[in-house]
Amino acid sequence: MKHCEGCEGCKIDKKLEDIKDKYKDVKGGIIGALHEVQDTYGYISTTAQKYLSKELNVPMSEIYGIITFYSRFSLTPKGKYNIQVCMGTACYVKGSEKVLNRFKEKLGIDEGQTTEDGKFSLEAVRCIGACGLAPAIVINKEVYGKMDVKKVDELIEEYTKK
């Protein structure tokens, strides 16, 4: 495995230690700890996995099993702008598939991938509950509703300039 040094997610820093302390004595706390690592660093590095495995006494194989089972956890960093296209039924009925396809086409990436410049990553996500605004997408927590192919183009342009 390629050894990676220097990026934020690979160091055992104070934040990681705090997460460990918080979940050390919680029954079944590993998922909670992984949530916080994911939120803090944007992904779960091998370093963090090894550290939590040792400190929380959960085998590495199990941690890897958990990370790959749950879609919220990621082993690689996401793009600067994470585009999530809601694929709930309400959005689907109103054309979210076209919206997703347009993003794929325009960005040249598939779901779950990141553009080469690290600017955009694309995800098809489960119902975000903004059914009144269907079809809806989320870019870094900002919700955009009533999407269509044209709006996709405009948003990509807007975010590329940012």
Partner: peptide, 26 residues
Amino acid sequence: LRLGAGAFVCGEETALMNSIEGKRGE
């Protein structure tokens, strides 16, 4: 509180309990 992590099957009662226990939600 326990947070789900994006697995639909965890809505099934036994899978949900596995997930609370800190396991894969099977």
